[in-house]
Design a protein around this nucleic acid. Structure first.
Lengths: 221, 221
DNA sequence: TGGCAATGTAGTATAACTACTACATCACTA
DNA sequence: TAGTGATGTAGTAGTTATACTACATTGCCA
């Protein structure tokens, strides 16, 4: 008997995932959780083989969720299921201890493969993420999965002000720089972190706030 | 034979919805669309009794979708299915021509009731929205602490695009408005919600999206 | 140790955005 | 029913941001 816990705040999504899970060979027993707190409660009282976790649910949404789960059941498999653009976040989650990461808009077939793979004890990595991984390793040195680690000191300063919603002109004043200089930093930050607008930047910052070196970089200013 | 078209960009959601639909009595025939364009294509070539529409899908996301659909099949029923906090937007959609509005995180039972109700030719209104309607008519006494409740339909549309980080110029194109018009909405949204920049807006939106259950609990007091 | 990439800085031209104002509808209220 | 406020829409003029380019400095590695 395989015990699967599906954690997603959308019941319709749970239903879909449940169907995927039940379509797989083996005797599946599915439990559903609507919030992260609920998820933790279940994990504390029962054993599960697999947790399929929506990272965008109330009370959750960051890397710490993985640790919170693994702390209670170190041998549980975790398949992250998310609406986010996979390639941006997958590596971070995988490194923190997740066993797979799949986007909600993946085809059913991929979903089945993901669940089966993770249940089988292997990591599930979609082709896109696999390529990203390879790129990371063929590049120099250790995997900085944290995109903020590559920012320079000045860039970090600007980023911190940007993510507060301050206009460039104010930032320029504060740092005693020309507007255009700040603009250049902004462009470089966007490029390095792979985002297209401040909102995405803020979201990305949220994702990495748990593990980032950004705080340190700010301190040394 | 009842023909149902499910429009959602997440296949897992389509799967869930399909299961709900097929669990209902009657001979159900389900078609799936992944984008709004695809939805329109289907509607142009075949007749459907019911469209279950995710308002947050690529190429869609505004009130005009309803009209685009009704223009082609005036007698089609439309059930809006959304991840948004229902109570904020439902009335606007219902007024534009939708026959029902259900949140993705509603219990399966409610989902079934919604589909059945709309198929039966009636409007589906959840209790929360019903209460909102009543409140609207029995005058507004208790303050909506939700700052988004005071936004007009158009403002909500603009807000949703803004919080995705889209530049005004794109929003203007999408909604077929002048840039300056969008700018006006933006200013009004900022004023009504009491924020000074998009980032604060996004944060505020997150806040009120995460507390939806709490909100309901408050209402029945 | 010479070279190259990363960093800090900024200008010019252009594009995007905001502030302020305006006006027509519509719904509702005194 | 006239008046008032909310809504949908947009223009003008001025402000702010971007793209692209440039250049000096620094650190590091071959």
């Amino acid at each position: 008997m395989t015990h699967v816990l599906i954690a997603d705040d959308h019941s319709i999504v749970r239903l879909g995932v449940k169907q995927i899970v039940c379509s797989l060979p083996g005797d599946m027993h599915v439990t559903e959780a609507k919030t992260f707190d609920e998820t933790i409660s279940f994990i504390e009282i029962r054993h599960f083989d697999l947790l399929i976790l929506d990272i965008n649910m109330p009370g959750g949404n960051n890397l710490q969720m993985i640790q919170a789960v693994k702390l209670r059941q170190p041998d549980i498999r975790i398949l992250i299921c998310s609406a986010y653009e996979e390639i941006l976040y997958a590596l971070g989650y995988l490194q923190t201890g997740a066993d797979g990461y799949i986007e909600k808009n993946s085809p059913d077939e991929d979903f089945k493969i993901a669940v089966a793979t993770v249940l089988g004890g292997e990591k599930y990595i979609s082709r896109a993420v696999r390529e990203q991984l390879i790129n990371k390793y063929t590049r120099q040195q250790e995997v900085h999965q944290n995109p903020f680690a590559v920012l320079s000191g000045r860039e970090v300063e600007v980023m911190n002000l940007l993510t507060k919603g301050l206009p460039l002109i104010k930032i320029a004043e504060m740092l005693h720089l020309q507007l255009t200089t700040v603009s250049t930093y902004k462009a470089r930050i966007f490029e390095k972190t792979g985002v297209k607008n401040v909102i995405a930047l803020v979201e990305k910052a949220h994702m990495y706030q748990a593990t980032s070196h950004v705080g340190e970089a700010v301190m040394k200013v």
